[in-house]
Design a binder for these strands. Structure first.
Ligand code: MN
Ligand code: MN
Ligand code: ZN
Ligand code: ZN
Lengths: 158, 158
DNA sequence: ACTGTTAATGGGAATGGTTCCCATTAACAG
DNA sequence: CTGTTAATGGGAACCATTCCCATTAACAGT
């Protein structure tokens, strides 16, 4: 297995063993791909990357593993408006660039992670979550905040 | 055509004519369904409703019309996590319950429109939009803010 | 009201992302 | 090393959405 972020290896070892899941080549390869990129990869893109290092892997395993990783909270799944799901590893609490929101170009599909204003946002969201969960008796697990529009390049082209 | 919200009829007449689009039975029926519900209907649900009143209508027309309505800003398209798109008419600026965000149950797919805390949210979002569009030279057109979790019923069941 | 132009329709086929199935493989506990 | 069984991979199935095209109907001009 190629060397990825050591933290990720520990994390996956830890979580997988902990829950009784087996640490297979496919799962390691998929985690490795996700921990090495800052992009928001589709299942197919992940499949292609994994394939380079571990050519016998299959699409169904990629989907199955991604679903598991999302359930375990290790990976986040997003929809940015091009009809496919996109995946991003959770970088945890240790970096301070951990939690971020997204800026999405509706023309070229470019996605920017931004953390500007994040403190104000997080604070308001926390407050809102508290209020909403009380009023609607809802157990809130996560939120999604995305801004859509035209990026620098697409804006000037038209 | 059944009587829907009069405002909607004017709006659709207005907008359609204005842009040179024809005001067909299908389009009227679709707008009528959307303006009568507070739910977030899928294309298929809209198709079934339209079918009751105008049985010769077809799915492709529903999809085609929804795309047009979204482009014109008359209808909003959402993804709440069950693999289908959901549509909601834009209730405009006149009601003060117009702009809202969503609370989504990941188990039963129930969606709540909430406007609590909306003023604080809108203010922060406007500020963030301003900052982001300057820093990233982005033309921001819309935002999506959704909270995911377990609703009252699903929470207690497990 | 009638007519011609052509935008829009509807049905069905095609597409594409995702899920399902099942015979085979390999992780790992003992 | 071995047995148990979770996990895999390939391909078929599924299902939401898009595409295609012959037919229909909206509506501007008369
Ligand atoms: Mn991101
Ligand atoms: Mn809504
Ligand atoms: Zn762009
Ligand atoms: Zn629920």
């Amino acid at each position: 297995m190629a060397r990825g972020c050591r933290r990720e290896q520990n994390l996956c070892h830890g979580r997988f063993k902990e829950y009784g899941y087996r640490l297979t080549m496919s799962r390691q390869a998929i985690l490795d791909v996700l921990s090495k990129t800052k992009d928001h990869l589709s299942a197919e893109e992940i499949y292609h990357e994994v394939h380079k290092v571990y050519p016998s892997s299959g699409m169904s395993t990629v989907y199955r593993t991604l679903e598991l990783l999302v359930d375990l909270g290790i990976v986040h799944k997003f929809h940015f408006g091009d009809g496919r799901s996109r995946y991003e590893i959770d970088r945890g609490e240790e970096h301070n660039d951990h939690h971020h929101h997204h800026l999405v170009c509706t023309k070229c599909q470019r996605v920017i992670n931004y953390t500007d204003f994040i403190d104000d946002e997080i604070e308001l969201l926390r407050r809102t979550e508290k209020g909403l969960s009380k009023k609607y008796n809802f157990k809130i697990v996560k939120h999604i905040l995305q801004f859509y529009g035209l990026c620098e390049r697409c804006k000037e082209k038209q």
